[in-house]
Structure formats: structure tokens, C-alpha cells
Design a protein around this nucleic acid. Structure first.
Lengths: 168, 168
DNA sequence: ATTAATTTTCAGTAATTACTGAAAATTCGG
DNA sequence: CCGAATTTTCAGTAATTACTGAAAATTAAT
């Protein structure tokens, strides 16, 4: 398989996967393109390679920067902005976990705390089932939260050695 | 807060979260409703409580069954089908991990194997960056795969004790 | 077998989400 | 400052995804 073909396939698959993770296709494709590009690219490069409009590139790159997955790069004597993506996949994964924890898990846990204060007789089957569900989610969430914290703070070697220990 | 209000909020939030995970809002809401319902519900119950059409309920319940998150329940002397959701959140999480691994991670790894066979000189910067990225993803995927297998096969206590050990 | 209850399908439509392209804002060299 | 290069915004539109409702298929009681 030729490089150009392989690139295309990688970008397209990474994009498809993104849609299963609540990320839009194009944003994931821009990320994919930047990951496999040795040198930083401009917005025009991305427009050309993915065949999408300037506005689209601009919005998606900004989102990727917000996610901490892409950085602006200044190049000596160049007026244009260049962009590059983190290439260490472990860092990418940690960054995504960190952000999703902040954006999803933390607010979810806050809500569960609220909901566990629901009025009503705990003998009532309806109330009981509701509270049990909430309690289960809270417990799960707390553990997930701790584990993810560890992962976020870990480096690759820690992760590997821990993973290995788990099988011993 | 009243139970009815709390239920509403739980269903609506669970639905919103689903959209961040590639699950459609309604499917997640049906799942939420079934999780907090002590007794199995019929399609008509779900239609009434969520205010959605019969076809919509039917399709989403079928998907939930495919995901292994909802079961059909036969009730003595009743013609209608009843549905119930797994209430143990650990089982829910394990089931989701198992399915997503099968649906996403496994095919992804297959593709990476393909892509790592790309032609071209490994001294070429373009080729090298591409191959390095793919190799990184493969390595990461292999570890994730192993860890997730362990989690899928584990029970709650195992998970908790392991989590605790990680902090020692 | 008939038929009434129930589930499933799916064409048409609605709702949502994503994209374009051009205008406005910003940046920066001279 | 001025003006050209570049980035950002966003109204309008396109593409995608989800939903409805009624017809078809299935089921099971009689």
C-alpha cells in the first residue's frame, strides 16, 4: 500500500471513530492529519488536504486547541500560523481523559449528589430503586474518578508496568 | 426535590451524556427510564413516559437489547412484552466496554496492522512519522485491550481492590 | 382458520448538526 | 497609521441523523 493511500485511510478511519466518541468527523480528521504530518501545517494546508472550507478548518482547529490536542507554532519570518498535534499517543490519551473527566464525569457526579437528596419514603419501591441506581452510579463514578486521576498523572512506563502486574 | 422531578432530570441528563458517547439521546433515555423502574415496562409505558412514538421506542429497545443492556421479560398470562434493564451499574459498564471493544478497538487494531505495512523508505520523514504514529497507536491499543479484558472479566470487588492498590 | 393484539418495518418528514463562503475583525510589516 | 495578509465569525444552507405514524408482519387466543 502506498503512503498516500494509507494516509487517506488513516484519516478517514480516525474520523469515523471520532463520531463514536462524540467528536465530529472533521475535527477527528484534522487531528489525524496533523498527527501524521512531520511538520506543522497552515490552515490552507489543511483546507487543501481535506478539501474543506476555511471556516470549517478554523473552527475545528480552535476546538482541538481547546482540547489541548493541537498547538499553534510560530515559524521564524512567517506571517501565517502553523499548527501541530501531539504525536505521543499516550499524551493524547491522557489529555482526552483529563478533559472528558472535567467536562462529563465531574458534572455528572455533582448531579448525582443532588439527586440522592430526593424526598420520599425509602420503603417505596419507586424511591428505593431510584436511590439505589443513583448510589450505584455515585460509587462507580468515585472509583472511576480515582483511577482516571492516576492514569492522567502516570507516564507510559507506569501504565505498562501496572497493566502487566494485573495479569501476573 | 420530588421523585418525579428527580426522575425527569436523571433521564434527561443520562440522555445528554449518551450523545457524548456516540449513543443517541433517546436510546440513552430509554435506558435511564428502565434503570430506575422497579418493574419491567411495556413499549406503551415507555411511549407514554418519554412522549415518543411506537416506532422509536421499538427501534431503540432493540438496539439496547443488541448492546446487552436490556432484556425482554415474559410475564405470566400477559400478551405484551415487558422490558427491563440491568440495574447493577458495574455490569452495565462491563457490558458497554465489552461491546465497544468488539465494535471499535478490535477493527481499529486490524486496520493499524494493515497500515503498518505501507511501502516506502523509512528514512523518508513522511513515511517515518506515519509509521511512528501507527506503531504508537498499536502499542497503546494492545495495552488498552489487555486491561479492558481484565476489567470485563472482573467483578466489582476485584475492581475496587485493584483501584485501592494503585494508590497504596 | 380467523381475528384481534402486538410488534416490526420503513418511507416520508422533522430536527439536529455540520459546513460554506463572504464579510468583519485582527494582525503586522512598512 | 495604512493597507495587505491572515484569522475569525456567522447567517444561510447542506448533510446527516433521528422520529413519526401507518401499513405489514407476526403472534397467539379462540
Amino acid at each position: 500500500m502506498k503512503l498516500s493511500e494509507a494516509k487517506q485511510q488513516f484519516i478517514s478511519t480516525w474520523g469515523a471513530i471520532g463520531t463514536h466518541w462524540g467528536i465530529n468527523r472533521t475535527m477527528a480528521q484534522v487531528h489525524a492529519l496533523l498527527m501524521i504530518s512531520p511538520d506543522p501545517l497552515t490552515q490552507d494546508d489543511v483546507m487543501a488536504q481535506l478539501n474543506i472550507s476555511r471556516g470549517n478548518v478554523n473552527m475545528n482547529i480552535r476546538d482541538l486547541i481547546d482540547w489541548g490536542l493541537v498547538d499553534r507554532v510560530l515559524i521564524q519570518g512567517e506571517r501565517k500560523e502553523y499548527f501541530t498535534a501531539e504525536k505521543d499517543i499516550w499524551k493524547v490519551a491522557r489529555q482526552i481523559i483529563k478533559e472528558r473527566k472535567k467536562r462529563e464525569l465531574d458534572p455528572m457526579m455533582k448531579l448525582m449528589d443532588q439527586l440522592s437528596k430526593v424526598d420520599g419514603d425509602k420503603k417505596d419501591k419507586e424511591v428505593k430503586t431510584f436511590l439505589d441506581t443513583i448510589a450505584g452510579i455515585k460509587k462507580f463514578g468515585a472509583h472511576a474518578d480515582s483511577m482516571l486521576d492516576v492514569v492522567v498523572k502516570s507516564d507510559e512506563n507506569w501504565f505498562i508496568s501496572t497493566a502487566l502486574k494485573l495479569f501476573k
